[in-house]
Amino acid sequence: DLSALRVEEVQNVINAMQKILECPICLELIKEPVSTKCDHIFCKFCMLKLLNQKKGPSQCPLCKNDITKRSLQESTRFSQLVEELLKIICAFQLDTGLEYANSYNFAKKENNSPEHLKDEVSIIQSMGYRNRAKRLLQSEPENPSLQETSLSVQLSNLGTVRTLRTKQRIQPQRTSVYIELGSDSSEDTVNKATYCSVGDQELLQITPQGTRDEISLDSAKKAACEFSETDVTNTEHHQPSNNDLNTTEKRAAERHPEKYQGSSVSNLHVEPCGTNTHASSLQHENSSLLLTKDRMNVEKAEF
Rank of each mutant, 00 (worst) to 15 (best):
L2Q: 10
A4C: 11
A4G: 09
L5Y: 06
R6Y: 04
E8G: 08
E9R: 10
A16L: 03
A16W: 14
M17Q: 14
M17Y: 11
K19T: 02
L21R: 15
C23D: 14
C23W: 00
C23R: 15
I25N: 03
C26S: 15
L29F: 02
P33I: 14
H40S: 11
I41H: 04
C43R: 15
F45T: 08
C46I: 15
L48V: 04
K49L: 03
K54Y: 10
G56I: 01
S58Y: 11
S58H: 07
C60G: 15
C63N: 15
K64N: 10
K64V: 03
D66G: 08
R70T: 08
Q73V: 06
R77L: 07
F78P: 12
E83R: 13
E84K: 09
E84G: 11
L85A: 01
L85N: 07
I89A: 08
C90M: 10
C90A: 04
Q93P: 10
Q93N: 03
L94T: 11
T96K: 14
G97C: 10
G97D: 10
Y100S: 15
F106W: 12
N111K: 10
S113D: 15
S126G: 11
M127K: 11
N131M: 15
R132H: 03
A133P: 07
K134V: 12
L136G: 10
L136H: 06
S139G: 06
S139V: 08
E140S: 06
E140W: 14
P141M: 14
E142Y: 05
N143S: 09
S145Y: 01
L146G: 11
Q147A: 09
S150A: 10
L151N: 10
Q154T: 00
G159H: 10
K167T: 00
Q168G: 06
Q171P: 13
S183Y: 00
V198A: 03
G199F: 08
L203W: 00
Q205R: 15
Q209D: 13
G210I: 01
T211K: 06
D213M: 00
I215D: 11
S216N: 10
S216G: 10
D218F: 00
A224C: 08
C225E: 11
E226S: 12
F227P: 12
F227S: 11
T230M: 08
T230A: 03
N243G: 03
L245A: 12
N246G: 13
N246R: 10
T247E: 14
E249S: 08
A252V: 06
A253T: 06
R255Q: 14
P257K: 02
K259N: 04
K259T: 06
G262C: 01
L268F: 02
H269I: 08
P272T: 08
G274D: 05
H284M: 03
E285Q: 14
L289I: 12
K293T: 04
M296V: 12
F303S: 13
